[in-house]
Computed example of a mutant assay.
Amino acid sequence: METQNELDYKRIAGAIEFLRLNYKRQPTLNEAANFVNLSPFHFQRMFKDWAGVTPKQFLQYVSVEHAKSILKEQQASLFDTAFETGLSGTGRLHDLFVKIEGMTPGEYKNGGKQLHINYSFAQTPFGTILVASTPKGICYMAFADADETDAFIKLQSRFPNAGYHKMLDQIQQNALFIFTQNWGKLGEIKMHLKGTAFQLKVWESLLKVPMGGLTTYARLACSLNNPNACRAVGTAVGDNPVAFLIPCHRVIRSTGEIGQYHWGSTRKNAIIGWEASKTLLTSI
């Protein structure tokens, strides 16, 4: 006899398959709930518990993934892409892309061709850092351990067709204030991120880890109401495109070990110690 847990899993698996097969007609919450014989209220709650996102968010993600394949592989127009994805028009396609991908459909199709990115290099207590921004916010931040040319090439690989201008703008300045302890400027930092719905949720959770604080992959997974997603959380943490501002350095292993860091475990130890000392000083 099936347990309730097994029955719930089958229902959510069936709902996911239903949404994947029928996304072109954009089924409503009621339709998806009826498919698995649940009330809309219970279906919404159960789906989020198991999948980590609401049915609407999942449908949006599936729609954008399909639109991305059409734009990239078929070089279709935005109108045709919206039609093939089951959206009512290019306006909805635009809104979904900006919400989930951090860029417009046109920017995605053209590899960031319509993006204008300013970038500069700055000295921090932990080495040289490259910081890049669009008019919407910080889009990239990474330690430049080799040389500036190599660091810039890595930035370009993320947005191969964007236009680049080497200059320090106000958005970057606000972000760099974090290294000088001008915490009053932190509220002015804006970000322009590209990622999946799950990655964005993980990065948002990281932003809630306070300066001088630490968390674990398991705690992050639990904060997303998905305690079994530790491995997926770890991958999302590793894919963080904005060093330091999105504090992936504050994530350690459940054993208490510092663990790996994209920019080196030695640097991670130094950052954690620096933040702890600065936090202690401000509390005295």
Results as ranks from 00 to 15, higher is better:
residue 21 L to D: 13
residue 179 F to Y: 12
residue 201 K to S: 14
residue 192 H to A: 14
residue 88 S to G: 13
residue 73 E to K: 09
residue 81 T to C: 13
residue 165 H to Q: 09
residue 198 F to V: 01
residue 63 S to C: 11
residue 96 L to T: 02
residue 21 L to S: 13
residue 62 V to T: 11
residue 185 K to C: 07
residue 180 T to K: 11
residue 206 L to Q: 02
residue 272 I to P: 00
residue 189 I to Y: 07
residue 248 C to W: 00
residue 176 L to P: 06
residue 78 L to E: 07
residue 195 G to M: 03
residue 186 L to V: 06
residue 232 A to Q: 14
residue 45 R to L: 10
residue 241 P to T: 07
residue 44 Q to Y: 13
residue 23 Y to N: 07
residue 25 R to D: 08
residue 247 P to L: 05
residue 41 F to D: 09
residue 179 F to M: 02
residue 202 V to R: 03
residue 23 Y to D: 09
residue 235 T to D: 07
residue 164 Y to I: 04
residue 271 I to R: 00
residue 222 C to F: 02
residue 213 G to R: 06
residue 26 Q to R: 15
residue 120 S to K: 00
residue 153 I to F: 09
residue 259 G to M: 08
residue 51 A to D: 06
residue 176 L to N: 06
residue 87 L to N: 01
residue 51 A to V: 15
residue 103 M to E: 10
residue 238 G to T: 03
residue 72 K to R: 14
residue 282 T to F: 12
residue 227 P to A: 05
residue 230 C to E: 15
residue 182 N to P: 00
residue 116 H to Y: 09
residue 97 F to L: 11
residue 126 F to G: 00
residue 183 W to K: 10
residue 206 L to M: 11
residue 124 T to Q: 11
residue 244 F to E: 03
residue 210 P to R: 11
residue 105 P to S: 03
residue 246 I to D: 01
residue 3 T to K: 03
residue 107 E to P: 02
residue 31 E to Q: 14
residue 2 E to N: 13
residue 175 A to T: 06
residue 31 E to D: 07
residue 121 F to Q: 05
residue 249 H to E: 13
residue 207 L to M: 15
residue 81 T to N: 04
residue 256 G to F: 04
residue 265 S to N: 05
residue 210 P to N: 13
residue 261 Y to C: 14
residue 49 D to V: 01
residue 114 Q to E: 13
residue 60 Q to R: 08
residue 3 T to C: 01
residue 216 T to R: 06
residue 213 G to E: 12
residue 31 E to L: 05
residue 147 D to F: 09
